[in-house]
């Protein structure tokens, strides 16, 4: 499979009150056309920052280093405006505030069909078709309604329809089920999988939920404090996750008894500038781990892990 998206040593630094906060540190990632990648990690791991960097939507003042190569081209700020919505799209994480409250759904969806002069009936038909695709109940009533008249699940489906309206080759979904009822989550996830598979689109799913990533994705990348700590085929994650952080996450899942690792309490200490990002909390940590950042060791089957103690 050829690479649709390649990320090369991508670093992002936020500057807050005079402090430089490294949100991403030298991330390398590779996404093939049609591949589905799960990006898992706790809050602050840099998942949303990674998506923001790929979309060119980082907050003003963020420093970006490294390369993002999309369809063979190195992206520069000039590219993003042309690519967004057409080639790549971000399904936002805050369902409740991601639709404009003062514009009707129809107005917001029509703004996405700007190429050329399309007759009104055709636009309406396209819109209805999209709304049907995301299985909204009574799709013909949706364009005339305003966001506050829709439920959270309906809003998420509308956002999906909007994101997919121009068939982008890359879909970034930032916690598409955040804030939804557990019952609704599965429906949205299977819908995302179905739509993306049907069009052969690539997907980056950002989530806290290991099970969602396993269910939806081919590969899962685990992030911790701005670094990738493990990249693993989804089918192997639950049984063969190796990194101490991955194992802590697996052990903390409710169905495995909410195991809370001994050293995960309290706020994390300041970012270790050298050594392994997980070293302050790691049970296997040796003095060497604090000195030098371990590389990603390949352990077979496309499985990579950033830990010298395990690989």
């Amino acid at each position: 499979m050829s690479a649709l998206l390649q990320i090369d040593r991508l670093s992002v630094i936020y500057h807050i009150n005079g402090y430089a906060l490294p949100a991403l540190q030298e991330v390398d990632l590779h996404l093939a056309a049609g591949e589905k990648l799960g990006l898992v990690g706790e809050s602050g791991a840099g998942k949303t920052t990674l998506a923001g960097a790929v979309m060119g939507l980082l907050p003003r003042g963020a420093t970006v280093k490294g390369k993002i190569i999309f369809k063979g081209k190195i992206l520069s700020p000039a590219h993003f405006a042309r690519l967004r919505g057409r080639e790549m799209v971000l399904i936002p994480q805050n369902v409740y505030n991601s639709l404009n409250p003062v514009l009707s759904i129809g107005q917001q969806m029509e703004d996405l069909q700007i190429e050329g002069k399309i007759p009104r009936e055709k636009r309406q038909a396209t819109m209805l078709n999209l709304l049907q695709k995301v299985r909204l109940p009574r799709p013909q009533a949706v364009p005339g309604s305003y966001p506050h008249q829709l439920s959270g699940g309906m809003k998420q489906r509308v956002l999906l329809a909007m994101g997919l309206s121009r068939s982008p080759s890359l879909v970034l979904a930032d916690e598409p089920t955040k804030g939804l009822d557990p019952v609704r989550r599965m429906g949205i996830l299977s819908l995302v999988r179905e739509l993306v598979d049907r069009n052969g689109q690539s997907l980056v799913l950002i989530t806290h939920d290991l099970n969602a990533a396993v269910y939806l994705c081919d590969t899962v990348a685990l992030m911790y404090r701005g670094q990738l700590v493990e990249i693993i085929p989804a089918s192997r994650l639950l049984t063969a996750g190796l990194h101490p952080y991955t194992r802590a996450l697996l052990a903390a899942a409710p169905e495995r008894g909410l195991g809370i690792p001994a050293r995960v309490d309290g706020p994390p200490s300041p970012f270790p500038l050298h050594g392994c990002p997980y070293s302050p909390l790691c049970e296997l940590c040796l003095p060497a781990c604090r000195k030098e950042k371990p590389p990603l060791f390949p352990v077979g089957h496309g499985h990579l892990v950033r830990c010298g103690q395990i690989a």
């Binding site: 939507l57 967004r84 919505g85 799209v89 971000l90 505030n97 917001q108 703004d111 994101g163």
Partner: peptide
Amino acid sequence: QQDYLRAARANGIGERKILFKYALKNAMI
């Protein structure tokens, strides 16, 4: 700062439209 402007940008809405249609109508309330 609102998410809906970020979401509109992510969907490829141009900056001019973002300002005059998506932001201003809200800001005028």
